[in-house]
Amino acid sequence: MMTRIAVYLSGGIADYKAVEVVRNLQKMGHEVRVGMTKNAEAFVGKQTLAALTKHPVLDDLWAEEVIHKISHIELADWSELALVVPATANIIAKLANGIADDAVSTTLLATSSPIMVVPAMNTHMWEKAATQRNLHNLEQDGILVMEPATGRLAEGYSGKGRMPEPDEISSWMADFLNKEDILKGKKIIVTAGGTIEAIDPVRYIGNRSSGKMGIAIAQEAAKCGAEVSLLVGNITAALPTDPHIKIYQTKSAREMLAKLQEIFPQNDGLVMAAAVADYHPKEYVDHKIKKNQASDNLTIELEENPDILKTIAQTKRSDQIVVGFAAETNDLLENAHRKLEKKHADFIVANDVSKNVFGSDEDQVTILSKNRENDVWPLMTKKKVAEKIVQLIADHLTK
């Protein structure tokens, strides 16, 4: 399938490889247009890219031949996919922080289609805390980042930061383009973060969930073509800004259940990644509870929250899928199997949260389902776990 791809070159010695990436994309049947920074033109002439693509190269917002067309918006709207190759530390910083001070950064800021980034820089620049922070922000915003290679750098020594070979980049893009349709036309609900149960206007009962896992799953499902409803409780992770993700704030367990009962019938699947509080205060006090001078103790009576996963899964049609999570600190598989039996979910993702999982970027999970052996996944990033869970959902819905 032909895709309209905008390729953006920033200034680095790896620019000469980007020319081959453009040729590879054309050979794959895609239509390509190019934008370049002025620094990139110190390494590769824009005439070369213009000749290859049969289109003018966007490098100046104020050039006479493009100023009347609002050229950066035109290219941003035209592209179905954007590729930044090579991506220097400078353009990564601009993209991560919304800086638009030249033709390339301005066009990328106006781009609503998926963006893929191929970093290439000196290893010391790659390892810098600021660069890693910016890369983390890109991933939080749903931008795909390809890991640089380790090898000989232009400076004459080896290290991480070398741009991967053009064939590897083309294969990475092909994998993305091939998988982005596996959930096309599907509607998926994902819950994320911890619910909070108010004691008074100041205090609440909650948990340590950051929301990273649920948000990663929502972003991955959207990348794979789904329209996603993301229900978030109390989170510390940044919310995604993907136009295919609709966000609902559902702070308490009862709010989350009410929203799910409203929208689940119109959706194809639910991933219950939220850490739902088991109890809420029986009585809510509408003013701040003051310290009792006559006693050192405060007693709060709790009552059980509704079981969201069980309640929703019981209404599941045969053409829908429900994935639950079992976050345990002991007897992981025994408790997860019990949850699988009682909750009527199709899959349970079991993880041991006694090992600093909350707030971490990594997790190790085991997938449980009826009539199948436990599938133990190795320790990996939550982003990778999300990719595998979304593939699991796609396979199940296809069947």
Rank of each mutant, 00 (worst) to 15 (best):
K184P: 00
C224A: 09
K187T: 10
L183E: 09
F176W: 15
A222L: 01
K212D: 02
A226T: 03
E262W: 08
I247K: 07
L231S: 02
G233Y: 03
A237V: 10
E255T: 13
E180D: 15
K186E: 01
L230Q: 06
G206Q: 09
D268E: 08
I235H: 07
A174P: 04
I263P: 05
H244C: 05
A238G: 06
Q261L: 15
K259V: 13
E180C: 13
I182H: 12
I245D: 03
P201M: 07
T191A: 12
P240D: 03
A198W: 15
A253M: 11
T241P: 02
S210Y: 07
R254C: 08
V271M: 12
K251R: 15
L260M: 13
V228K: 11
I199F: 10
K186P: 04
D181T: 15
I245W: 13
T241A: 14
K223G: 01
M272T: 07
L257M: 12
M256K: 08
R208I: 01
L257T: 11
I245E: 07
Q249W: 08
I217R: 01
V228H: 08
R203L: 03
Y204T: 00
E220A: 02
N207M: 05
G214D: 00
C224S: 01
T236N: 09
Y248K: 09
A237I: 07
